[in-house]
Design a binder for these strands. Structure first.
Lengths: 215, 215
DNA sequence: TACTTGTCCTGTCATGCCGTCAGCTTACCG
DNA sequence: CGGTAAGCTGACGGCATGACAGGACAAGTA
């Protein structure tokens, strides 16, 4: 699918080339988590990687292009989020642990990749389809699984059939993403990390099953 | 409180000055909604306002500073969001309309100010306290009211007392904000605007009261 | 070892934006 | 009408951008 890694001018990158390319990506990732997105400059990334700006432009059209690459890498790892929800039972006690695992997995994934996810979120909100696609790629599997779960509950009559399962699942996932993005913010609000998880778990369980989780 | 509007070098701005200042802000707001945040340049804003970059720097330290100003304006208007939740009953039918009004008000506010709110969200997520403060200012009143509502329901035994009311309220507000920010995105997911509102309403009501809204 | 080939990196340059200053114009006031 | 402060801009050094040509390097070949 991806085939070979290519430079901007069309040459195939060899071993050495891929190494510097990766180094540039790593440094970019580091920069993103230490300075505001708007202030990340090509020259800084290049300096940090011990190379020159010209080299950067050999592998990426611009900063945005490189971020997309980073995001793509992350999206691959994000596929593992599927495991958090696929083939899970939402009945009784196992439903409670399903909600717990989902919340925990989500929060830690976001914590790990917060810098890039911020930028992806911004790009998506600004209407950039490429960023939106990546955001989808990460959230889709989770959302789809949750959508199925909601449908099941609707079949059992626990959730109003007029409600759109995709809308509910999507909203819950958006909530998880948003809370994860502002984890630090909640702290300055006087809400501790430890308080956040059970509340989210409760809300997710409630939203999917229409019922409070068993104690 | 604000006293007079001042230029960067300390002079008080007169009528004419305030006019150009405002014009710059308006043009900035327009730019933000048409181009990516990263690409908004001082020179473009100035050109659009029919003035020179130097003039821009007379009133604002940089683009970020001007955005903060815009956000501050918006935050004032956002205070009206309080009315959506203050002194509302969450019992029975009136609870259902309370949830409805909250969702509707939130979505339309976000739709109106989406460009600036995107940037505020980014700044807050990046850890900038000034942006975080503004985000708080907008969301705080709503969150606090919701927190009180949750506490009431806890007193009635409908919600587990171990759960932190602030965490629940904050998560719900974060959900509203996130969904609002990605309203367009949901469409390309196959979820229509019309489906979104009832689902959000349902989730909010469920989260606040622990019960499904009456039909 | 010398030569060849293709990959990889950088020095350099034109361009354009940033952020600042001195200095000019405009408005207000006694 | 002259003084004073507000308001604006041209111009400038500095830096990031993005393009190119050419040098450095590794690997294969004779």
């Amino acid at each position: 699918m991806t085939g070979q890694v290519r430079t901007v001018d069309g040459r195939v990158a060899g071993r050495r080339g891929q190494a510097t390319r990766q180094k540039l990506l790593d440094c970019l990732g580091e920069m993103l988590s230490t300075s505001p997105y708007r202030d990340v400059k090509v020259i800084d990334v290049a300096r940090k990687a011990g190379t020159s700006p010209a080299t950067f432009y050999q592998y990426f059209p611009d900063v945005e292009g490189a971020v997309l690459e980073l995001a793509e890498e992350m999206a691959k790892e994000g596929a593992s989020l599927t495991d958090l929800v696929a083939d899970r039972s939402w009945a009784g006690k196992s439903g409670a642990t399903a909600a717990e695992d989902l919340v925990e997995g989500f929060l830690s994934f976001w914590r790990k990749h917060d810098a890039i996810l911020r930028v992806v979120d911004l790009g998506a909100a600004e209407g950039d389809k490429r960023f939106y696609k990546i955001r989808m790629k990460i959230l889709n599997s989770v959302t789809n699984s949750l959508t199925d779960a909601v449908k099941e509950q609707q079949a059992k009559g626990r959730i109003d059939k007029d409600l759109n399962p995709g809308a509910i699942a999507g909203s819950l996932v958006a909530m998880l993403a948003a809370v994860a993005a502002h984890q630090k913010g909640f702290q300055s609000w006087g809400v501790k990390q430890a308080d956040l998880r059970p509340s989210l778990t409760w809300l997710v369980h409630l939203g999917i099953t229409g019922r409070k989780p068993p104690k």
